[in-house]
Design a protein around this nucleic acid. Sequence first.
DNA 1: CTTGACCTTCCAGTGAAGTGGAAGGTCTAG
DNA 2: CTAGACCTTCCACTTCACTGGAAGGTCAAG
Lengths: 133, 133
Amino acid sequence: MRIGDLAGESGLTTKTIRYYEQVGLMPAPPRTSGGYRDYPTEAASRLAFIRDAQHAGLTLAEIRSILALRDSGESPCSHVSDLIDQHLEEINQRMAELRKTRIALRDLAQRAADTDPASCIDTDICRIFRQPR
Amino acid sequence: MRIGDLAGESGLTTKTIRYYEQVGLMPAPPRTSGGYRDYPTEAASRLAFIRDAQHAGLTLAEIRSILALRDSGESPCSHVSDLIDQHLEEINQRMAELRKTRIALRDLAQRAADTDPASCIDTDICRIFRQPR
DNA sequence: CTTGACCTTCCAGTGAAGTGGAAGGTCTAG
DNA sequence: CTAGACCTTCCACTTCACTGGAAGGTCAAG
């Protein structure tokens, strides 16, 4: 299978597939006599795995670590579990931050609605953003 | 006030303050005879404004647009309101995405816990991530 | 007069995940 | 035989908000 076919099948671009090879996510495939990459069918499922794991919020570096483990013959299950737990933790933190920011923004929106534009001029740039501190 | 004093007061580095000048967030201050930047006291409140707005989730580009409006003598109030509303919308979207991802991850964690590691070997890399599709 | 803290400019790099383009090689259909 | 669709490598660029470092200038204290 040539890189264009694999790209079509996986929904990625040929650029991205070569990039994945460059950064160690995909093994270098054999070449045809003309120098073209010649992918085995498993390549598609490896790309699907990368897509799925990425969709679950893992970075390419983490996916690489899972694939490296798997490629060395080890079962990456517990490693995967750890990464998943870690990402859940990160998501919870990120959501808590967003909730805080949202509250701050709603407060600002209220202040903006209540502020007479004329009173803004000549104050410290824009009083809407001033935090009581 | 020299740049180091301003940095100490604002909690930023001198590098960052020069960067803000370079990208148009801070006006170029007058110089001393020796070529040092000599900041007026208002500089500190402008930096505080930048910090607060950034903390509210605005990008430096957006903050620049507010400051440019303000510097031109216009009241940026309605512009600020628009930006705030826009950011609230973005945050809501981002949180919805995170909730989806969190559900997906919890599902994966469950599957990982239920999966016999031995059954992982020789399947399509790691079945935990396979999406039913 | 020298040391050292502070300042100046300019250039380059970070991380994440690719994207764009140039210059050239290969293969298939008409 | 040639057009054009596809492939190759290599290098640079993207966004965002800085950060690091080199080479050199300024200023106050000892």
